[in-house]
Every structure is written in structure tokens, then in C-alpha cells.
Design a protein around this nucleic acid. Structure first.
Length: 560
RNA sequence: UGACCGAUGGUGUAACGGUAGCACUGCAGAUUUUGGUUCUGCCUGUCCAGGUUCGAAUCCUGGUCGGUCAACCA
């Protein structure tokens, strides 16, 4: 038998880490790791971007490398500083740090232009006067080779002069483009003389009206990576077929060459994950904005009460691979619960009140009871809770004809009021329609929480608030935005919208919440995790439901 | 009728020629002044067919299925 000391469990590396470690071993990048997150500022970041940020930043951190934030702003007609600001805030909030390395593809417009000129001089690029339709026509199809443009063999001098005229604004938009001269018969469509510069007489949010030609993604991206000394240029799977072009451009230019690596983007069931569709939800008013708590955007999740820690943990748990995947929403929820369970202070809130009067408790008397702030972290201390004769309890914590295993209140039954006394339900009062409107109970004076000498043990503990002391508040409860696991499988994803994704109600919360600030997170005991919304004000409190607690009783009742 | 990529429980992800493991979900139980947490146990998997090998999730061949590619978007 081998009794050698237990070996460390082999660290589990994802395939990108394996590539990096191979590079570190071979010395390909001199042991350097430098990643980047390259958003286009034309929309808000979503949880899929968060995965990418965590991946890129996490790799830089793990290998003691660097991480750049680079805005891929090569299309001035769709981009805006509003998005730049929002993206910067989200990346920062997620915990990624880019120090002074905040870059813009537009910073490189001069270098990009020079690179294009060099390509022309090398006979590797030409100005094409064909229309967009003609170019598409000559491009062929995935199964049919393309044909050469009639402008493909212009002289270098002519191309140089034409390209300069393009830059000078001598031509109208759409009249010509600069194309890389590669291979119109390539099985890879992206190598069939891709357009690398086009004319756009648009105002750019950073360079203003300085340029009227703008580089295309394929041309700008690799060169930007190269300029910044990126080692591992990580992107999603659909760019796999772009990699030969990425490599071709840098090789033709003789420039430093990062390694592009593609991984499978994150998909979540019951949600859509494309900027285009998220934008429609916002602009067409199906949600209240990019930060609507039902949105899978980073700002939406933040407003919903998700923590950056939870999102990072989620990104870690979903893993990195090349296989298409759909992650269960339950994993995301698990990650927030896990973090909030450890960190969120417990408070009592009654969401659907039922009046309860304690007949044998002195009228107009207030007793202050100590309540633990968080049993998961004793150092979080205790607070004082007002108790009195008249309380609200949760309506579904009472049943007139309880099923087996129901251990809340019922006529003649006993429960403990959390942090207070054990009570017995003596009488049920109803209105004319038969609806229960009040419970008359008696309490056991010796059963006070923490000093119970009654000897009575009860199965159930329920939460409550004192009517005279409770604060009313608005609750915004959320359900999934879409009814179907894959809304995109519908002809129109809007048909899948869940009409009940938002429920607003009036609730009662304990008075310690009077000064809560936007972003504060709580566990409403026995209910779920909630956070104070930015719309909240003293006297007009507003809470968002982040996620419910696991509810095994609900499962039990559903089985019936 | 092309090229490229991929395929391991319900969902993800490991195992790198040597006992298919982990997490989420689900189920059962213990503990509990939250039907929460925590703890324990259980269910469920290598796309198919050949081949190489003492031995294949892993290597080879051929299928099947899924994804991507024909924007002057990124």
C-alpha cells in the first residue's frame, strides 16, 4: 500500500487556463498574462458579460497579469457615452480593476489608418467601388465560392490615393470601401476579401467629426489587442471563424500576435441574453429601464439586490467550456441565497397581514424584546423589537382546517411568535362573507423567548409585527420575466412575456427599518431576501424582492 | 449539400489511456425559536457503430445530433 502523504487535489483548470499554462511553460508570451474586456458602448452589460469580465479579470489576477477595459467604439452611429459610463460603473461594481488601462479602439484610429495604408502598400488591400449589394453578390455563399471584384487589381498608387480621398471625405457613404485582399474562394467567408474600412459621416462620441471613415471590427480588434500587448484575447464562440482573419491581419502587418481563444457564451433559461432584445424590452416599455430588477442586466441584478460576490461565485460555478450551455436560473438564485444568508440582517415583515389580538396581554403596553440580527453571524448582535397586544401575522400562517403536518396556527393550536411568546389561538373572527378578519389568542407569560420556563414546546414559529409600531411599505415582488425556458424558441419572444412578472403590494415592516437606505439588503424572516429600492424614502419605504427563501412547505402543499 | 466547432445524469462541469467525481436541481431523513441554514443519504450520465489497446469518456474511422459562418454590426 502506498502511504505517502495525501497529495493536494489536482487543481481543476478550465481549458483556457490549460492553454495559458502551456504558454507559460513554452515561454510563448514570456510568462505574461494580459487580458481585456472589450465591450461596444451600445447597450448595457448583462450577466453574460459579467461571466466574461470575471473570466478575463480572474485570469489576470490568477496569473499575476494585467486586465484592460477597452471600449470597442468603431461604429459611431450606435454608440454613446451613456453606455460608456454605465459599463464602467458595472465593471467596477463587479470588482474588476483596470487601473489606468481604460482604452478605446478610437484611441488607435491613427494607427489603424496607418496599418490600412501599409496593407495597401503591400498589395494586400484595395478600394472597392462596388455597392453593398454587389459585394454581397460577389461574396458567394458558404457552399459556393465568391468571385473577384472588378476593382480587385487596382494599382497600389491608385488604392493609396483613393483611400486617402475616402479619409478626406471626398466620397459619399456607401460608394466605396477598403477591402483586405485575401481569397474570394476561401471556404471561410471571412477571408473572402473582408471589408476593413467604410465611410460613415457620423459624429463619434470621442473623436467627434475628425474621421469620416471607420475601421470594421475584424480590422480594429486584433490591432487593438496587439497594440495593448494582450496575450490572450478571449471571446465567444461565434468569433471562431474570425480567428484566421485576426491572425492574417497581424501576420501581414508583422505585428505582435495575441492568441484568440473562444469560449461558449452564457445562456440562462427563462431569459433572453442579447443586447438587441434587451434593448427592445426597454425601448418598447415592457420593463421600466435597463435597471429594471427583472432584467438580466448587471444594473438590473444590482437593483434587484444581487451582490457582486454572488455574481462572481455564479460565474465561477458555471465554468468555462466550448460546449453550448443553458444554465438553470436556480444556480444563480442559489448563489445569492448563499451569500445573503451569511450577510443579510434578519428583520420581520408581514406581507399579507391578519390581525391577531392577545386577550390576556395588557392593553397599551409596549415590551421591547431582543432579536438576533443574524444567527449566521453572532457578531452582528441584536436589536430591540416592540411587542404589544395587537399584532399582524402572515395570513397563510393560519388555517382553519389545517392539513396534516401543518405546524402553524389553527383554532386551539399553539405557535411561538419569533423572539416573543408562545400563543394559543382561542377564537376566530370572520366578516359577513366568511373571511377570517381577526384571531383572538392568549399568550403564555412564562414562555418569553430566551427565558422560557413554561416547559411547552411547539412545532411552529411565526413572524409578526406590532400594529402600533409597524411601518407600512411598498413591496415589489418579481417573477421570471418570461414564461418559457427558451423565449427565443418562440416566433416572437414577446409572446413569452410573463404578465405577472411584477407584483406590487403593501406590507408592514418592523420599525427598525425606518432609516433604511437604497441598496440595503435584508432577510425578511421566513420569506426571502429583499433590498431597499432607490425609490425608497423615509416614510415611503420601497423594497424589492431579491429571491425567496427555499420553501419546502410550499413543495409539500404542491404535492397535494 | 461546404467549412469550422462541439457532444459526459434534468442542468452545468471534472476525469488528459487505468475505479466516471463535484456542484445545482429533485427525493428521503436528522437538527433547528426562520418549514431558512447546517448535516446525512439517495436517484440519475460517457450520442451511435466499428477499430486500436491488457484496458477507451479519453486515441482512430464512419455516422448522428447541435451550434456557427453569406452586416459597409460587434
Amino acid at each position: 500500500m502506498d502511504h505517502s502523504p495525501a497529495t493536494e487535489p489536482a487543481p481543476v483548470l478550465n481549458f483556457i487556463e490549460q492553454i495559458i499554462e502551456e504558454h507559460n511553460l513554452s515561454g510563448k508570451y514570456g510568462g505574461r498574462v494580459h487580458t481585456r474586456f472589450p465591450p461596444e458602448p451600445n447597450g448595457y452589460l448583462h450577466i453574460g458579460h459579467a461571466k466574461s469580465i470575471c473570466l478575463n479579470y480572474g485570469l489576470a489576477e490568477k496569473y499575476h497579469g494585467k486586465f484592460n477595459l477597452r471600449f470597442d467604439d468603431t461604429n459611431p452611429v450606435t454608440e454613446d457615452t451613456e453606455y460608456v459610463d454605465a459599463i464602467r460603473e458595472d465593471v467596477q461594481w463587479l470588482g474588476a480593476r483596470w487601473d489606468d488601462r481604460e482604452f478605446y479602439a478610437s484611441n488607435y484610429f491613427d494607427q489603424l489608418y496607418a496599418a490600412a495604408v501599409q496593407l495597401i502598400k503591400n498589395g494586400k488591400a484595395y478600394v472597392d467601388d462596388s455597392t453593398a449589394e454587389q459585394i454581397a453578390e460577389m461574396k458567394g455563399t458558404p457552399t459556393k465560392a465568391g468571385i473577384d471584384s472588378p476593382y480587385r487589381n487596382r494599382s497600389i498608387a491608385e488604392n493609396l490615393s483613393l483611400f486617402e480621398q475616402m479619409k478626406n471625405g471626398d466620397f459619399e457613404e456607401g460608394t466605396c470601401t477598403l477591402r483586405a485582399r485575401i481569397d474570394m474562394a476561401s471556404p471561410n467567408m471571412h477571408l473572402r476579401d473582408p471589408i476593413i474600412y467604410r465611410i460613415k459621416k457620423a459624429h463619434h462620441h470621442r473623436t467627434g467629426d475628425q474621421w469620416c471613415i471607420y475601421p470594421m471590427y475584424d480590422f480594429a480588434h486584433g490591432i487593438s489587442d496587439s497594440i495593448e500587448g494582450i496575450t490572450h484575447s478571449i471571446c465567444t464562440l461565434e468569433f471562431e471563424v474570425h480567428r484566421p482573419l485576426y491572425d492574417w491581419i497581424l501576420a501581414e502587418l508583422g505585428n505582435y500576435q495575441p492568441q484568440q481563444i473562444e469560449f461558449a457564451r452564457l445562456n440562462l433559461n427563462y431569459t433572453v441574453m442579447s443586447k438587441r432584445y434587451l434593448k427592445r424590452l426597454v425601448t418598447e416599455g415592457y420593463v421600466k429601464g435597463w435597471d429594471d430588477p427583472r432584467m438580466p442586466t448587471v444594473c438590473g441584478l444590482r437593483r434587484r439586490g444581487y451582490t457582486a460576490e454572488a455574481i462572481r461565485e455564479f460565474a465561477r460555478r458555471v465554468g468555462v467550456a466550448k460546449r453550448e450551455n443553458v444554465i438553470d436560473l436556480s444556480l444563480l438564485e442559489f448563489c445569492v441565497r448563499e451569500h445573503l444568508n451569511k450577510t443579510a440582517p434578519r428583520v420581520m415583515a408581514v406581507l399579507d397581514p391578519l390581525l391577531l389580538t392577545i386577550s390576556n396581554y395588557p392593553e397599551n403596553h409596549t415590551e421591547w424584546l431582543a432579536a438576533e440580527n443574524n444567527p449566521e453571524s453572532p457578531e452582528s448582535g441584536t436589536r430591540q423589537l416592540p411587542f404589544s397586544q395587537t399584532l399582524y401575522i402572515e395570513r397563510d400562517d393560519f388555517m382553519e382546517n389545517p392539513p396534516k403536518k401543518y405546524f402553524r396556527l389553527y383554532p386551539g393550536g399553539m405557535v411561538r411568535l419569533k423572539n416573543a411568546y408562545i400563543i394559543r389561538c382561542d377564537e376566530v373572527l370572520k366578516d359577513a362573507s366568511g373571511k377570517v378578519i381577526e384571531l383572538r389568542c392568549s399568550y403564555i407569560p412564562e414562555s418569553k423567548s430566551g427565558e422560557d420556563t413554561s416547559g411547552i414546546s411547539v412545532k411552529g414559529t411565526i413572524h409578526w409585527v406590532s400594529v402600533a409600531h409597524a411601518l407600512s411599505a411598498e413591496l415589489r415582488a418579481y417573477d421570471r420575466l418570461f414564461k418559457d425556458e427558451d423565449p427565443m424558441a418562440k416566433d416572437n419572444f414577446l409572446d413569452s412575456l410573463n404578465p405577472d412578472s411584477l407584483t406590487v403590494s403593501k406590507i408592514w415592516v418592523e420599525p427598525s427599518l425606518s432609516n433604511t437606505q437604497a441598496g440595503d439588503r435584508f432577510q425578511f424572516i421566513r420569506k426571502g431576501y429583499y433590498c431597499t429600492d432607490q425609490d425608497s424614502q423615509p416614510g415611503q419605504l420601497v423594497f424589492n424582492q431579491t429571491v425567496g427563501l427555499k420553501d419546502s412547505w410550499a413543495k409539500e402543499t404542491n404535492k397535494r
